Amino acid sequence: MMPVPDPHPDVFDTQWPLRVADVDREGRLKFDAATRHIQDVGSDQLREMGFEETHPLWIVRRTMIDLIAPIEFKDMLRLRRWCSGTSNRWCEMRVRIDGRKGGRIESEAFWININRETQGPARISDDFLSGLRRTTDVDRLRWKAYLKAGGRDDADEIRAYPVRVSDIDIFDHMNNSVYWSVVEDFLGTQPDLLKAPLRVTIEHDLPVALGDSLEIIRHTHPAGSTDRFGEELADRTVTTLTYSVGDETKAVASIFPL
């Protein structure tokens, strides 16, 4: 990921404490909680830049999070957010979260600006773009999917994941952070993965709605068994989680040690 351009006047820099609802039983900042912080700092930066009213609605297409070192309970979080790539209707935004005790999380998310009336991609205003571009020279950002859905026939596990009313956000869809709760459920069965730096990526294809019969389809690809993720990952185990409603793939997650 792009390193933080620090110091830089256009890197949004803020702090807040780590709360009890953000951590797991061991006191580690959870991925779903980290994702909420990433969303919240984005809203705060939008307000700080003065575009909260003109560009209020965004959806995330992909979020990549690197857990470099765990951030622990009662720590103070420092969050820095800046743009790492733009186009006319979407951008990539980096967020780095540091704890005072040495914990660190790196993230990058692909955000699409949404028109309130059409609910489709909308052009980002020129004055907003000019501010975003002060931290990047990437101005023709294109979408390219990294992940492919796993099938049912060779799955290691298929399980139901009930969608709750509290999971639904203002878009009438399951909120981004809830997808990361599924990741936390998996990591709860694989504690060794949390002993080393870890990368988790989620790509969203279609929204999940209240009433959907969501299933999680898990595949584990042992080290040396495949190069489908690229030669650089052929030496490690990669787990994928496919979020499926019937025959529709809603999202795909990948999990592997760095």
Rank of each mutant, 00 (worst) to 15 (best):
D205E: 14
D139H: 15
S225M: 15
S125W: 09
G50D: 07
K195T: 14
V178I: 10
D24H: 10
R142Q: 09
G230F: 09
D212F: 02
R19I: 14
R133E: 15
Y146M: 15
Q45F: 13
I65Q: 01
L193Y: 13
V252H: 01
D98T: 07
N175T: 11
A149I: 04
W180E: 00
I68A: 07
I114E: 01
L241V: 10
R100C: 12
R36V: 04
I124P: 00
V41S: 02
M64Q: 15
E48I: 05
E106V: 08
K195W: 08
L79A: 10
G50N: 09
W111E: 09
A253R: 01
K30R: 15
V200M: 03
P257Y: 07
G188E: 06
L46P: 04
H173D: 01
I168D: 00
P3N: 11
T118P: 03
G102V: 14
E117D: 09
S166T: 08
P222Q: 07
Q119T: 11
I65N: 01
L214T: 01
V200F: 02
S177R: 00
D169V: 03
P257H: 12
I71T: 04
R104I: 12
P197S: 12
L29M: 05
D66T: 06
F31Q: 00
W82T: 14
R134P: 05
M76A: 13
W180N: 00
I114G: 02
I38E: 00
T226I: 13
I217H: 05
P207G: 10
G131E: 11
T86R: 03
L129V: 10
E48P: 05
T240W: 04
I170G: 06
P70E: 11
L29W: 12
Q39W: 02
A122S: 14
F229G: 03
P191K: 07
S43R: 12
M2I: 14
R123I: 15
V20Q: 11
W90V: 04
V200H: 01
L147Y: 04
P56W: 07
V11K: 08
T239C: 09
R218L: 14
R81C: 10
G27I: 11
P5D: 14
G42I: 08
V200N: 01
T239L: 04
W111D: 14
W82N: 07
G246R: 09
F73L: 08
P222W: 13
T54F: 07
Q119N: 09
L129N: 04
A160D: 06
L194K: 09
I217V: 15
G246Q: 06
I168P: 00
V11H: 10
W143R: 05
T135L: 03
E52H: 10
D13C: 13
I170F: 05
R36S: 03
T242R: 04
R19S: 12
R28G: 02
A196I: 10
V138Q: 07
V4K: 14
N176A: 01
R199K: 15
H37T: 15
I71N: 01
I170P: 02
G103N: 09
R164V: 00
H8C: 08
G50K: 08
R78I: 12
A34R: 01
T220C: 06
P121I: 08
K250M: 07
L187V: 05
W58Y: 12
D44T: 11
